[in-house]
């Protein structure tokens, strides 16, 4: 019969296993690293879960804490105890030191990528109500599919001439200049971007660009140009048609169709 692993070690192994598992799965297998802030919270709750499973009954709990109890109370473990009692504060001190030590890493800045839009915005010199604004060409999708297709193609042309340098010819945010930008251009293929937004929202973001971001979207480091200075109103609406058409997303609407 194989030797039974002590419960405390079991718990520790589970935690280490989950931790390594997260890193292996995300960073190696999926090639998309797990953010350290998120991993910290994940591990906090995994630890809570492990604690719950290992302590719901009396016997198990006793077995779990027995080594710790022995370490503190057992006279024969004096040497280990003294070593541990020196190492633990030192480790805590070191951890604090490295945490607080200034580094060359720029501070984490969190931008709200999709700030709540204002009710109205001044676009093309007009005060526009963003809640009511609709894409004037959207209705053609059903009424006149041929003309709609044409408009989408025109939108594609506008996109290729203006947008693809950053947002990429696959609309995946990976254009030729994307690597030079921080924050990187948005990936429209992602379900979390344009699929979550209304067309009026896109119209507002495209036409007023980075400088038109509201206060809560600080820091205003977006390099999105103010497109109302370069494109016509119709061109922007057509590009929006193209964005949804190419990615296969549907713009968010408030009513069921």
């Amino acid at each position: 019969m194989a030797m039974k692993i002590p419960r405390l070690l079991q718990a520790a192994l589970v935690l280490i296993g989950v931790y390594v598992g997260f890193i292996v799965v995300f960073d190696v297998l999926l090639q998309a690293i797990i953010p350290s802030s998120l991993l910290a919270m994940y591990m906090f709750f995994v630890t809570a879960g492990v604690f719950m499973v290992f302590t719901y009954d009396e016997e198990g709990t006793r077995e779990l804490v027995a080594p710790i109890k022995a370490l503190v109370e057992d006279p024969s473990k004096r040497l280990i105890r003294n070593i541990v009692f020196v190492i633990v504060p030192l480790a805590a001190g070191a951890a604090t030191y490295f945490q607080m030590q200034p580094s060359f890493e720029a501070p984490v800045e969190l931008r709200t990528i999709h700030p709540a839009p204002p009710t109205t915005a001044k676009i093309y010199g007009k005060q526009v109500n963003l809640l009511k604004l609709e894409n004037p060409f959207r209705e053609l999708e059903k009424e006149d599919p041929d003309q709609f297709r044409e408009l989408v193609d025109e939108g594609a042309a506008v996109y290729i001439r203006n947008c693809q340098f950053c947002h990429g010819d696959k609309l995946d945010g990976n254009g030729p200049y994307a690597a030079g930008l921080n924050p990187t251009p948005l990936n429209f293929q992602d379900v979390g971007t344009i699929a979550q937004l209304q067309e009026s929202y896109l119209f507002w973001r495209i036409s007023t660009g980075g400088p038109g971001l509201p206060k809560e979207a600080a820091p205003w480091i977006s390099s999105m140009p103010v497109w109302q200075d370069f494109l016509t109103e119709d061109e922007i609406w057509k590009v929006i048609l193209y964005l949804y058409d190419y990615t296969g997303h549907e713009p968010r609407s408030w009513e069921h169709e």
Binding site: F26, A32, P35, L38, V108, G173, A178, T184, D190
Partner: peptide
Amino acid sequence: PHTLVLTNEELKSLGGPYHKILGP
């Protein structure tokens, strides 16, 4: 969370603020 808190290094590695696995 929908918007992840990312360090600059992570941002670069992911190629943007959206995480293809965690985003959805």
